[in-house]
Simulated scan of single mutants.
Amino acid sequence: MIKTAWVFPGQGSQAVGMGADLLELPGAKAKFSLAEQILGWSVPQLCQGDEEKLSRTLYTQPCLYVIESILADLMRQKGHYPAVVAGHSLGEYTALYAAGVFDFETGLRLVKRRSELMDNTSGGQMVALMGFDRQQLELQIQYSQDVVLANDNSDGQVVISGKPAAVEGLLAKIKVKRAVKLNLSGAFHSPLMASAATEFQQFLKATRFSDAKVFVLSNAEPAPTTNAATLKQRLAQQMTKGVRWREICLQLPQEGVEKVIEIGPGKVLTGLIKRNSPDLELENVSTAAQVPN
């Protein structure tokens, strides 16, 4: 039996048209209907509509959570189960759902609140960097009070986050092959999210978590755990701490994982895993048709 991990993508993987093939599936219909009651708007309509609106944090996060959850359900219906789960940023919520930590509705209510708080933040900047000297970058971040490593995706690709002037100042001090400013409202995964994180924590505190049925590798701490209290604590830290995806990728083989299935739109995570842990077998499930029998 091949030991498999399921990983779930986050913001940036969304695409107009995602989930279109799920609309007529009975289980999916029920989830789309419940989501509309909770959100006050239709996930399928949003996903088939305007790209600019879909790319707004307020809508992107719930849409990804709902579609990824339905695809995870389809995987289980076909008799597939993971030994380990992980998710990139927002994807961690779907990973926790897939691990049985909370039910679909609980997860969606958490994602709804998270997306509202993050959408309301401003005054920050995030920049993706490709091709740089890691030692030089880490040294400059160490000297800067207002820039952090928000997404450590691979040795050659990271995202920095912080106050715009500080981010620009840091970029002027390092050599980088390519720097891309992300179209996001705030400095996600940085201390600048502290007020939003504090408000979210009150909401999170009232939410019941169960022990996970499989190991979870969290963004804030990639060491595997199934403990409900630990998983909740790590999720509480996620908004202000960096996504340690490179370390998660390196941890997968340590857990005996041989195959990784990315569940959700796009192939961002399998691309990163290939760079970090090239010996792992990779598969993508973005549609119902791609769910293996």
Score class of each variant (00 low, 15 high):
122 S>Q: 10
138 E>R: 04
100 G>Q: 06
109 R>S: 02
151 N>G: 04
125 Q>T: 13
120 N>S: 12
120 N>C: 14
125 Q>G: 08
116 E>R: 11
133 D>S: 09
118 M>N: 14
109 R>D: 01
126 M>V: 02
117 L>C: 04
130 M>E: 08
129 L>N: 00
105 E>D: 09
118 M>H: 06
116 E>D: 08
152 D>E: 10
110 L>M: 08
108 L>V: 02
106 T>F: 01
153 N>D: 05
105 E>K: 05
104 F>N: 10
135 Q>W: 07
153 N>K: 07
103 D>F: 09
116 E>M: 15
145 Q>M: 10
137 L>R: 00
155 D>R: 13
145 Q>N: 10
117 L>H: 13
113 R>E: 12
101 V>E: 07
112 K>M: 15
147 V>L: 10
149 L>D: 05
113 R>H: 15
157 Q>M: 06
116 E>Q: 15
154 S>R: 10
109 R>K: 10
118 M>F: 01
111 V>N: 02
142 Q>D: 06
120 N>I: 08
137 L>C: 12
123 G>M: 00
157 Q>P: 05
148 V>M: 01
125 Q>P: 09
112 K>P: 11
115 S>M: 09
147 V>S: 12
101 V>S: 02
145 Q>K: 02
141 I>C: 00
143 Y>I: 11
139 L>S: 06
102 F>K: 07
154 S>N: 09
125 Q>R: 13
122 S>V: 11
114 R>I: 13
129 L>I: 07
156 G>E: 06
110 L>C: 03
130 M>F: 11
131 G>C: 08
103 D>K: 03
151 N>C: 04
127 V>G: 05
106 T>V: 01
105 E>M: 05
146 D>M: 11
141 I>Q: 00
125 Q>L: 06
122 S>A: 10
115 S>H: 06
154 S>L: 09
119 D>Q: 13
148 V>Q: 03
138 E>A: 07
135 Q>F: 11
148 V>T: 02
157 Q>G: 02
